[in-house]
Simulated assay, not measured.
Amino acid sequence: MKKYTYPSVLSIAGFDGSGGAGIHADIKTISALGCYATTVLTALPVQNTQGVRNIYPIPLEAVEDQIEAVMEDIMPAAIKIGMVHTPELVESITSTLKKYDAVPIVLDPVMVATSGHRLIEEDSINALIEQLIPIATVITPNMDEAAILANMNVKTLEEMRIAGKQIKELGCNSILMKGGHQETTNITSLFFDPNNRCHSFETKKIRTNNTHGSGCTLSSAIASLLAQGKTLFESVDVAQSYVYNAIYSGKNVQTGKGNGPLNHFFNPQKMIKNEMD
């Protein structure tokens, strides 16, 4: 009798009790794209659609134990890393992952929430740059996060290009710099590939407050598509289309009193079954 496996994606990220961001957005995205979601909780933010109220830490040993439990049982085909807000957590995740065979890693350098709330400690930035960024297949900063990484203002498309080149010099394999904060009719995201080529992706800007968790959704979508065996460029391309449609499909729905979530299940895919050798 033939046996099958699901393409598995591991999300290493923070919590969101309101269901729009963090591991909640990741689980929804991974599932909607036909993959199997596993998770490791890195922090317990207390938040809703209106903002972050507090962040409670998860013990480092607990994070390490979670990673080992998943990796030793359900080896992922791709990993998405989100909220890692302390240098000790960066070190813990990096050293634990190095025990296992290399898997494509999508790093969303979560530093600033949609509400504008700063989510990362200052000394964590250097830890990200020195340890996690070099092992990531692709990082997905928004313009505010790119400004922090490049240590410059990032308000225009030209500044995005300059920042991308500077971040690439940090030892980054590839970057998808999101342009969602642009106040123009069309928004442009830039993908700096492993060969230092810059690709532009342009979409119409959707006028809605329902973008809570869009960054989490994009990074986990890229990871899901990589897990399916798609190329990095195709994964980046298709993931952006998925996020655009998820925002568009949920733009007129009110969930909460602040920035609402995306509609992750606007066109859910059946679980993918890969035949085992």
Rank of each mutant, 00 (worst) to 15 (best):
S189R: 03
T185R: 13
K178S: 09
L170P: 01
N173L: 02
G213S: 07
Y242S: 09
Y242H: 13
C216P: 00
R197W: 00
I175H: 10
G213F: 02
G258M: 09
N263Y: 08
H212L: 07
E169N: 14
G256H: 08
G179I: 02
Y244K: 15
G256E: 08
T185I: 09
N263K: 12
G180V: 04
L218Y: 03
R207M: 12
P194K: 11
N263R: 11
L190A: 01
D237Q: 14
S249K: 08
F192P: 02
S219E: 05
L232W: 07
H181P: 13
R207V: 15
Q240E: 05
T203C: 12
A227R: 05
H199M: 01
H212A: 04
D193A: 09
C198G: 07
G179Q: 10
I175S: 05
N173E: 12
T255M: 15
S214I: 06
T231A: 08
I206V: 12
V243W: 02
C216M: 03
S174I: 10
S235Y: 02
N186Y: 10
R197A: 07
E169G: 08
T203L: 06
I206Q: 11
I175R: 03
T231V: 06
P194Q: 12
R207P: 00
P261I: 00
V236R: 06
G171L: 02
M177V: 07
P194C: 06
